[in-house]
Design a protein around this nucleic acid. Sequence first.
RNA 1: GGCGGAGUAGCCAAGUGGUAAGGCAAUGGUUUGCAAAACCGUCAUUCGAGGGUUCGAUUCCCUCCUCCGCCUCCA
Length: 494
Amino acid sequence: MDRADAVGFSERFPLCSWLTAVRCLNPAMRLFDTLSRTERELAPIDGSTFRFYCCGPTVYGPAHIGNFRTFVLQDVLRRTLETGGTRTLHVRNITDVDDKTIRDSQKAGKSLTEFTSGWTEKFHADCEKLGLLAPHIEPGAVDHIPQQITMIETLVEKGNAYSSDDGSVYFKISSFPGYGRLSRLDERELDLGKTQNARSSSDEYEKDSLSDFVLWKGRKPEDGENFWPSPWGEGRPGWHLECSAMIQEYLGDSFDLHSGGVDLVFPHHENEIAQSECACGGHFAANWFHITHLLVDGGKMSKSLGNLYTLEDLAEKGFSAMEVRYVLIGAHYRKPLNFTFDSLTGAREALSKLARGARQLASKIEPGTVLTSAGFGPFQAAWDSLTGDLNTPGALGGIFTGLRESVRLTGAEAAAALAGMNRLLRALGLVLPEEAAGDAVEIPELIRSLAEKRWQARLAKNWAESDTLRAELVEQGWLMKDGRESYTLEPAGN
RNA sequence: GGCGGAGUAGCCAAGUGGUAAGGCAAUGGUUUGCAAAACCGUCAUUCGAGGGUUCGAUUCCCUCCUCCGCCUCCA
């Protein structure tokens, strides 16, 4: 199957020799598809570029590490595909108009755009710290109002949507038989009939069926300045429709993969399928990739429990974004991941162990050797884990195992192993700590002189004074480590 | 209540119808004036509980317990 596919690829692209070679060595990866509930091989449906869409953040505050679990795993998926020689087109939106962005921008006394662009910038800064590749296209909903209106018009024309008296437009779920397939919603669960309580409920908009969802929201006073003209009067787009319209704009009617957190399966993605397949008439996404939620200390993350962390919160506690990334890829994406501070500390140790391993491997290679090997050497098992349903913890384990195996390697074999390891690290998006990272820390003059005093005492074999001074340094929060010819100082207990 | 997912050593976690990867922590050793760091070694007869199928199950089936997610705009 894999081989046959590779042959087909080379026939289609006879000139892409290096790409073909990579593909032959590393056949396309496999990934579990939420809709079909099977593991499937990921191959671009257009034969050249793997085009995928990720539901991005709603920019009304800082993203937390739970959000980033999703974005990091999406990043690993992209990196793995690219490492395997597949070209990608990555689209991730910014949700910049919805109830929360409007509400909070008003609270902040800012315009919606001013408010959301601030949080978008913050999001980008966090992404960069985490080593996330920037999407090729990052559309915002506000910039795509015409496309959204066009899609709604199409749905109304086709009889899949209807407008109500208050200027809102709803999608008629009963017009799409496939509704509920992704989330396995039993039809009995849906209230498909016209009900009286729909009209009399506290719901703010008028719709025929309780299950019907809004495509366009008629203007309301609390929207403030945030409304746009439309054939149904002034208003703003519904959240679900934003994604469908932007997907059609940048990826067309059909594309390779759609992704988001599990919570988006229903109703968001279910609704997207309904809108897009009714409006465009084709098959929407070929694959669905959903990332399970992060737990903190075994439970749900929430502000009230005080366990909702942002990168900034963790940085204040002395943890780097790369350490956070390591923790986030430390569990399989379809299983819950329990985030703890112990695992963050563990990530620090694990990362420096990887860095030592890489340095040791590099030390066995002639300087100037070009790492051209296309294989993975002792890290083949790690690569197989990664390309087999994106098993990131399996891949991490495989790197450590491969590192142990490569201890015996020399020359060209060591070079090939290092090339394989680097390729894996790139796929996982891990950047290893530099050897002398501690040098960046500023050491106060008092500490310097204490350390120097102790070093002299130690050279004079005055152990008692030496130990007293070291204890004093610890009290000041500094750890002094003796080397053969000199010493190092680092902040203790971080 | 409905649907979906998870329970593997102190912690974070892979994995498999044939007898449990890896990381952290812990611990023994080498080294060090002593430490730290580094390096070498040890570390689950057992995979939530109880049944069943099987030559054999942690892995398949059933029941139970616990936890988590979704059930209309939360990644």
